Computed example of a mutant assay.
Amino acid sequence: MKQDVMGTAGAAPGYAAPVQWAPWLQRGLGGRHRRPRRTVVQMIKGMPPFPRRTLKYRGPGMPIMYGSDVERWQRQMCKKGYTLNVDGWYGPRSSKVAKSLQRRTGLTDDGEIDAWTWAATWG
């Protein structure tokens, strides 16, 4: 047997590497192509994934949250019959609508859009 730079003996010439147990590792993709796991909350058909941040209005004088996730939520709330401007800003009116939805669905009415409130919006 030959020794490599580290002083360890190399493998025998007839030795074959074991078959990998995961097919994505055999293809060299490292598992990145797999679909991310879906939680129970995300099983509702047609519901977009939760935006990974809790939408909340902190009060006057504090920064207001803005983004396409807020706009998407506002559009869905308008489809459900709530009166709300779809502008992408999560302000006092959006918080009030969220509290109303949370009361109707039996959630804690804190006005924050977490994963459960997000699911109740599409449910």
Rank of each mutant, 00 (worst) to 15 (best):
D114Q: 06
T39Q: 03
D4F: 04
K45H: 08
M6E: 11
D69A: 06
G91P: 07
D69N: 04
K99I: 06
T8D: 05
G31C: 00
M77Y: 01
S95F: 02
M6G: 03
V97H: 01
M62K: 12
G91Q: 08
D69R: 03
H33G: 13
C78E: 05
R37Y: 08
K45W: 03
R93G: 02
W21C: 04
L25H: 08
R93W: 02
G106Q: 11
K80Q: 14
G123P: 00
R72S: 12
G7D: 04
W122P: 01
P23M: 06
P13L: 13
G106N: 11
P23S: 12
G46T: 05
D114V: 03
A115H: 04
P92H: 04
W116V: 07
G28C: 02
G59W: 04
V40R: 10
Q26A: 15
G10P: 01
D114Y: 00
M1Y: 02
Q26R: 14
A22E: 13
G7R: 04
E112G: 06
G28K: 02
M62W: 06
R93Q: 14
S68G: 11
R27K: 04
W21A: 11
K96V: 08
D87V: 03
G91A: 10
T105D: 12
N85C: 01
R52N: 10
R58L: 10
P48D: 11
P49D: 13
T121F: 00
R104G: 07
Q20K: 13
Q26G: 14
Q42E: 15
L25F: 10
I113G: 01
P23C: 02
Q74M: 04
R72P: 00
W122V: 07
L25Q: 14
M43A: 13
L29I: 11
P23Q: 06
G46M: 03
W89D: 09
A120H: 14
T54M: 09
W21S: 13
K96H: 09
Y66P: 00
G10I: 09
T105H: 13
T39V: 03
P92G: 03
Y66H: 11
S68V: 06
G123C: 10
G111N: 03
A9R: 07
K45T: 08
W73V: 10
A22S: 12
A22R: 12
T108Q: 10
G111V: 07
L101K: 11
R53Q: 10
G91E: 11
Q3V: 12
M1C: 05
C78T: 15
A12L: 14
G123W: 14
T54V: 15
R103M: 13
Y90K: 00
T8C: 03
A120C: 15
G111T: 09
D110M: 06
G61I: 06
A115G: 00
G30H: 04
Q102E: 13
M77V: 09
K56T: 09
I44M: 09
M47K: 13
K2W: 02
R104H: 08
G67W: 05
W122D: 07
A16Q: 15
G106E: 11
P18K: 08
L84Y: 02
Q102T: 11
V70C: 02
Y90H: 01
K56Y: 04
H33A: 10
G106K: 06
K2D: 06
R38M: 10
E112A: 12
P92T: 09
D114I: 02
R35E: 06
A120N: 13
G10D: 06
S94N: 01
T8A: 05
R38A: 08
R35L: 07
K80D: 05
G30T: 12
A12Q: 14
F50W: 13
L107Q: 12
T117H: 01
